[in-house]
Simulated scan of single mutants.
Amino acid sequence: MTAVEEILFCSPRDPMAATLVEELSQALRNLTGDDGRSSFSEADAETPNSAFVVLLQNGAPVACGALRPLQDDCAEIKRMYSRRPGGGLAVLLALERRARELGYREICLSTRKINDRAVSFYRKHGYVIAEPYGKYRESDLSVCFSKRLLPNA
């Protein structure tokens, strides 16, 4: 049976989203010793030029991600997480589409170097290592990525 997928734009405070974000925090804590919460607040994804998405498969939440303003033409991806293979790509593509709709020309993000799965995932999907930005300028633990967004892609 083929899964029925749906992208839901919602608040990260929505119970479906909050469950996924909590799972992500626990997974990050187990992997890195830091749950990542200090780098994101729910309000970050509730501003006019931001978004939070949940991927539903057969009505069940399986993946999430956030988009927030970083600079005038650059958005930042935060809180990407998927319970199932393929879920992360569906969320990433939805966030990239939304970023284009909001007028962003670039997406930036940071992840921990130790998070091999995330590093490989972003590289596989066109993200390149970028200059550290913001609080990541002083971090030897993180690696920053960016991707130029092509119009109408």
Rank of each mutant, 00 (worst) to 15 (best):
A51E: 07
P12F: 06
N115L: 15
P48T: 11
E42L: 07
D116N: 03
A75H: 07
S25Y: 01
V4Y: 12
S142C: 06
I129G: 07
S38R: 09
H125V: 13
A118I: 02
A130V: 01
I77M: 03
C10Y: 07
L8Y: 00
D44R: 02
S139D: 10
G88R: 15
G86D: 13
G65H: 04
E106A: 15
A45D: 08
R105L: 15
T32F: 07
A45Y: 08
E138Y: 11
Y127F: 08
E23W: 02
A94Q: 14
A94K: 15
D140E: 14
F52E: 12
S142Q: 14
K147E: 00
R97L: 14
L95V: 04
P61E: 01
G103K: 10
P151C: 12
K135N: 01
K124T: 13
L8E: 13
V54N: 09
K147F: 02
R97H: 12
Y81G: 08
S39K: 01
F145W: 04
N115E: 04
H125D: 12
F145R: 01
V53C: 07
R84Y: 03
R123I: 03
G59K: 03
L89Q: 05
E42G: 06
I7K: 02
A60T: 14
N30K: 05
C144E: 02
E23H: 06
I107Q: 15
K78D: 13
E106S: 08
V91R: 00
